[in-house]
């Protein structure tokens, strides 16, 4: 498991992907920061972090698209699947590598709260809860992206599937408004954003944390299933 994590993690940083993504992400986020906080003369980070999670919609699929798809395309999948490592370990290893890249990207954005701390007196607890929310949100997106990547050997297709699924998750609250009664409740309950907004307002709710982590677990499980399914396929 850790062998795979280490290898994948390195490979993201051996290619330009991680650097380009982190650079671009920082570039865009700094615009938001400038706009909201510098011009708005505010020290509340939440708005910026909200926007950061929105741009994740575009960044995560590109980050995750190669994770499983590339192994299939290059035939290295055979190496992994015929090694004594279990499929679950393979998938978790790949997930952790992606999370590593994501966390490093997040680490870079900490420069913004740092600026706030130096030049103002922001609510540190709020920043903490917002970041926690952001990381959990990212964790869910990465698991969705990983799953999308396991469905195909074409990276572009993986990215598109990933983006559409993430967007659906993102917009599910909006979809809920088309329904009433039970379906409305289901969609609202599924909505990541509702829970995410709690974090943005400084509420750390254990159920939300569990909810997000279960989401991750479900998608990792699905990824394992999809990968195993191929072995058992009869057609």
């Amino acid at each position: 498991m850790f062998a795979i994590m280490k290898r994948d993690f390195r490979s993201y940083f051996n290619s330009p992907i991680a650097y380009v993504m982190i650079g671009l992400f920082m570039f865009i986020v700094s615009f938001f920061f400038n706009d909201y906080l510098a011009y708005g003369s505010s020290d509340i980070m939440s708005g910026v972090i909200s926007n950061m999670s929105f741009i994740l919609l575009f960044f995560v699929p590109i980050m995750t698209m190669r994770s499983m798809a590339e192994d299939k395309k290059n035939g290295t999948e055979v190496l992994l699947l015929t090694s004594p490592v279990r499929v679950t370990e393979i998938v978790i290893g790949k997930y952790l590598a992606l999370m590593g890249v994501f966390l490093i990207m997040t680490l870079f954005t900490l420069i913004f709260p740092l600026i706030l701390i130096i030049f103002g007196s922001p609510d540190l607890a709020l920043i903490f809860s917002s970041y926690l929310g952001f990381i959990l949100y990212g964790a869910v997106f990465v698991s969705v992206g990983l799953f999308a990547s396991s469905l195909t050997e074409n990276q572009i297709v993986a990215a598109v599937i990933g983006f559409v699924s993430m967007f659906t998750l993102y917009a599910i609250k909006f979809l809920a408004s088309f329904f009433t009664g039970f379906l409305y409740d289901v969609f609202t309950w599924l909505s990541l954003n509702a829970r995410y907004n709690d974090f943005m307002t400084g509420i750390i709710d254990l159920t939300s944390i569990v909810f997000m982590l279960s989401f991750v677990a479900v998608f990792i499980f699905l990824t394992v299933r999809v990968t195993e399914r191929k072995r058992w396929s009869q057609g």
């Binding site: 290898r7 490979s11 051996n14 290619s15 290059n74 035939g75 290295t76 055979v78 190496l79």
Partner: peptide
Amino acid sequence: QPPLYMDM
């Protein structure tokens, strides 16, 4: 097809 990682 030898299962090689080209970037290593």
